[in-house]
Structures are given as C-alpha cells and as structure tokens.
Nucleic acid binder design. Structure first.
Lengths: 176, 176
DNA sequence: GAAGATTGTTGTTGACGACAACAATTGATG
DNA sequence: CATCAATTGTTGTCGTCAACAACAATCTTC
C-alpha cells in the first residue's frame, strides 16, 4: 500500500514542486535534463569504485547466465578450481586463498558435496581438518565448467575489448 | 557443535587420508604446496570476474573505512551525488541511472531522508513521483563526503598506481 | 471512460560478507 | 606430563545487496 506516499502528499499539498534550482551541471556541458534524458553523474565519473561495481555486476550476471545450464555460480567455480588444482587442501587454506570466510565455505562445500562434486576426506595428520578433493564426476564436471567459463570470458573480451581485458587482468593481478 | 564432523570421522576411520594425487600443477612451475605455502590458482588466474570481485571488495572496504566518520556507504554516496548534480529527479530516474532497483532505492532514501540529507518533494506534474533534492545540510554534507571520497580515491591510486587507475577508469567508462 | 503502463512501496528470497560463539583437536609452555 | 593458547570446522545471527513479485495510486493512450 502506498499510504506513506499519500500521507506525504496530503501533508505537502501542492507547494514547492516545480521548485527546480539551476541544474548546476559541473561537467561543463550545461545541458538540461528535465525529462528522463541524459543524467549527469559529475563527481561519480572518476570514481573507480562505482565503475568497478557496475562492471562486477555485469560480469557476474553474464557468468551466471553462461553457466546457468550447469547451475554453477562464480564462487562455486572458484572453489572447485582451487581444489582441483591443489587436491588435499584444508578448508582453512581454501578460504584464505580465495578471501572468503571459512564459515561461508562450509555451506559452499555442503552444496558441492551434496552434488557429488567435492569430497571432504578426514586428514590423517590433523584430525581437525578435512582434505578437500574433487570427486571423479567433479573432475569431469569441472572440465565442462571450464569450457563454459572460457565462453563467458570471451563475452568479457567482446564487451570491453580483447586488449583491454588483458590490461585489466594485469592491473588487478595483485588482487588475485 | 561439530557433531557432523565427528560422525564423518568415525565413519571414515583412518583410511585414505594421505591419499594425495600428484598436485598436477598446470602452471608449469611444478612446485608442491603441502603446507600452507603458495597455492596455485591455475585457471582462476586469467578470469576477469575473480580479479574484479577481489578488487571490488577491497575498494568498497576502503571506501567504507575512509568515510566511516560520516557513516556513508558507497551506494548512499552515489545516490546523493546524482541527486546533487540533477535536482528534481524522480526515484525511477535515479534508480535507472545508477543501476539499482527502485525497491532498493526506497530504503536508501528513507535513511537519507531520516538524516535530513535528502528531500522527497511531491512532483507537481506527476502526482505519482517524487522530485528528489538535497537539503541544505545535505549539500554541505555532500561537500565533505566528496573530500573524503577523494581521499579514498587517492588510496586506490596508491594501491594500483596512478596511471593504472586512469587506465582502469577508461576501460570501464562504458559501465558508468 | 476503460485498458494498459508507470511510480513508489512492501515483502520475500537467496547470495554474500562480517562476527561471534562453540566443540574438538593441536601446539606450545610451564 | 599437565595446562593453556591457538587452530579448524561448524553453527548462528546480523546487515547489505540483487532479483522478483505483488499492490495502490496515478498517468497515458485509445
């Protein structure tokens, strides 16, 4: 119900409303935007965080869409990749490596284990920890995931340009 | 309680455990990683989404930390920036411009309005929509936010390099 | 004036990050 | 060797966020 909205309208009556001070567009163009035309961002352009957020949103959506047939999300893919490349890792090691919390990894592994993609094998050397391995079907599945992920990566290259993608990876290499 | 873990241990006994197939490090180095040493990511390196996720996490944390004194999060800052640069916009227009859902914007504006930073003024031309404006204190506050955001942006430049930041913004300009 | 679209709102769902506890186990220190 | 601190996996809660789905009020279009 839009009661709040109504209440506000009743209270505000029909005052101010068209009170629209000069758009003060600081970008120098000075164009107006009364309708839903171009909306200036001014200070927002030039903020790395904003651009990265938008890009991350786009890239994740494309990843999820491209891997929708196999129902694998980016985080799940990263977990399986690390385990596949380093069999026997503990949960702690995987979590630290991927920058996710061990509490969160528990649920991720629960779902992957329920789908018979990953195995938690009790470690012999440390009875607290689990040695993580891909199951046989997990290895086969990961191969397919990789192909789809490569397709997604091609989408990225199409979107921002092949050389720009390379440059991006190079710039952000310190975070991987 | 770690009952699940225990049950698994009891069931598994002391079998496999050290069963650690060759690390199959495909990156060509062939170094091992039995301890918590270097953990190969293999296929994960070269995935733009992973790098971007890590970077986005870092950049947001730094933004939140840098603007902690004024208690402003990245999304709140972007909303105020757009409204400040384009007074009188409707919620729909702001949401579309920033790529956030109008449902989400409702709560964002609720909090900003509760802090007397933003005003929802009923539009005279369309009684469904609200014309969004910064309050007087909102404008003053935004000026301070901008200074802190600039400081945050300097952190980014320090982290990845001044010219790399420029390049990054240029590459992702299509998403802003 | 009726039908359909739009706007703001509420609510739900699920992924996710951040914390805080906790039991079991290990490691270090006395 | 006994004890205490640290680690590991687990459970739980909290808050943020994206994605939907509904809904009332209102606008637009025919």
């Amino acid at each position: 119900m839009a009661t709040k909205q109504q209440a506000q309208r009743r209270a505000a009556g029909s005052r101010a409303a068209v009170h629209r001070p000069k758009p003060q567009s600081a970008n120098g163009t000075g164009r107006d935007h009364d309708a839903e035309r171009e909306i200036g961002l001014d200070a927002l352009v030039g903020h790395a965080g904003y651009a990265v957020r938008r890009f991350q949103l786009w890239i994740f959506q494309d990843f999820i869409k491209t891997l929708a047939a196999v129902d694998i999300r980016p985080t799940q893919y990263s977990v399986m990749t690390v385990i596949g490349a380093n069999p026997g890792l503990s949960q702690m090691a995987v979590a630290k490596r991927l920058g996710i919390e061990r509490a969160r990894l528990v649920h991720l592994l629960d779902s992957l284990e329920a789908r018979d993609l990953v195995n938690r094998i009790p470690s012999a050397t440390d009875r607290r920890s689990h040695a993580l391995h891909l199951t046989t079907s997990g290895k086969a599945a990961l191969a397919q995931f990789r192909r789809l992920a490569a397709e997604h990566e091609r989408h990225v290259a199409e979107k921002i340009g092949k050389e720009n993608r390379e440059r991006l990876l190079q710039i952000l290499a310190a975070f991987t």
